[in-house]
Design a protein around this nucleic acid. Sequence first.
DNA 1: TGCAAATTAATTGTGCACAATATAAATTTG
DNA 2: CAAATTTATATTGTGCACAATTAATTTGCA
Lengths: 141, 141
Amino acid sequence: MNPLALSNQLCFRAYALSRHITAMYQPLLKKLELTYPQYLAMLVLWESDGVSVKQMGEQLMLDSGTLTPLLKRMEEAGLLQRKRSAEDERVVHISLTDKGKKLKSKAAAIPGELQKCMGFSAEDYLEFMQVSARLLKHKNV
Amino acid sequence: MNPLALSNQLCFRAYALSRHITAMYQPLLKKLELTYPQYLAMLVLWESDGVSVKQMGEQLMLDSGTLTPLLKRMEEAGLLQRKRSAEDERVVHISLTDKGKKLKSKAAAIPGELQKCMGFSAEDYLEFMQVSARLLKHKNV
DNA sequence: TGCAAATTAATTGTGCACAATATAAATTTG
DNA sequence: CAAATTTATATTGTGCACAATTAATTTGCA
């Protein structure tokens, strides 16, 4: 086996799969007027409204260089508000607007639609989640 | 199970894994002065020097909007040459320079180093390759 | 043959990612 | 308590991704 062959690269497979999934989401998210990273931010907020930028960054594994402009665009779209904390002025809390909260019911259909159009089974889902968790485990080199 | 929970999203897992792997490559690729997508382009060229932009795009699943500027940067770095075909002037062929060819021996160590620093087993590798292939199979919706 | 349709790249514009740096506020220390 | 350090976010700059459009060829078929 040639270790430099593209088809043998775990890295390329993960990269291609991620972009493929994002592409599958795109038509579904267009209805909500969200990009894929914006959808991920909404998932965090629907679970834990009011998180700080740092907390969101920890969940999504993204830094402020990515999140600050993304959240500003979402604020302009009327989905959320950014407010600096009174107790600790370094912290910015993100809270959903009514518009942002209402979007959740529309989004509820998305996971099912995606599974249908990607055509994977519950077993594939589980196996992928397990093996990818193992690959993500060793983070501190 | 909450289908909108971030931790249950196959999409987020794939996205996080892909970015995690790219981050693991980054210090290794820095020695070669390549970005991660540039490394993928080199993998294609080391396997099939002289491919067209279209062929490279098919292998990497990237379009000319991504590849054209990427290849121009690599041409400026002296790794490859872009030449319009004489038979069909729409086609641009990409061929490695000596510098580009020589980089292959340096790159040979990378897959092993990556596996070591990510700490996954041959079984994990195989299982991931298999399940991700199944997830990628259903492309035509 | 002649021209519409298809093919291949390039361009333009928007939105991430992320490294590096800056800034300001809070905390720790001497 | 002042200086040094740490923490949280913002800014800047580079490099992808990708949709949409454009331009130059080539092909296919009436």
